[in-house]
Amino acid sequence: MKNEIKTSLGGKTIALLAQSIINGLITGSIYALVASGYSLIYSTNNFMHFAHGISVVAAGYMVYWLFSLVGIPFYVTCIITVILSAIFGLAMYRLIYLPLQKKGASNVILLIASIGILTFFQNVIQIAFGSGVKLVGYIEVSKGITFAGVTMTLLQIVILIISLIIFILLYQFMQKTKTGRNMRAVSNNSELASIVGINHIRISDISFLIGSALAGVAGILVALEQNLSPFMGTNLMIKGFTGAVIGGINYVPGSIVGSFLLGMAENLGILVLPSGYKDAIAFSMLFLFLLFKPNGILGKKEGRFDK
């Protein structure tokens, strides 16, 4: 009798842990989509593009507008949204960052500019759509599939699968293509990259295009999973940034792993802390990593040959 209770409690605890880990993976996959684009842009451009957060939110609202309001079919909406996100990112680079760089602006100035862009467009969205939350509701909130005591909704499974596919494609692109290799080269040693003939502006263009397209995908998934509100970009950006710092901000696979770890830490943390502490967990991790391990878990040691 006693033994039975023990095992059933143990089983429950394990199921609870498993559920938290699964929830962490799902949260983490959205953070990872934000973080991978962010760190792709950071690693090739070396400045903090915090306006990346607005690419995510703008994509979410784009889905709401095109699909829920205008009534364009969902898959068409997704394609348009990803393309427009990429162009939006490129426009930020070409119309704001690059002209500033040409005037000799430091990376701190570019960081301030990026916060300006973020704030500006958050307010534009508020004026256009109002400050109330918006719901896309494409996939009905279904009851979820329960397996071995762990429940996942269809939407969550879709989110997980889509993001994993995207990360595999991104990795292949970075490792196997000429452009991917050029991007790694710029990130490793940008001066030498120019010396061997790599056109830095072209690489920046591509990093903003791809990074912002990833933000577009993140925005679509966020729109499906959560309510949209104009100022959610700041929080998403902080989470993506934290994930990137944990894994290694200069190294795209690192930032992906870090984001999954962050998602799991948040969801495991609220097993023992009140759920309002989710953000506090993220902030504490950000703080500790910046302080003690600024290169992150997988961030490459410089390993450079300095003569």
Partner: peptide, 19 residues
Amino acid sequence: NQGKINFTNLTVRENLTIG
């Protein structure tokens, strides 16, 4: 150049072909 003369995190082959 002088200083950081290679892409340390790229393979030898990638370093050679990249230029």
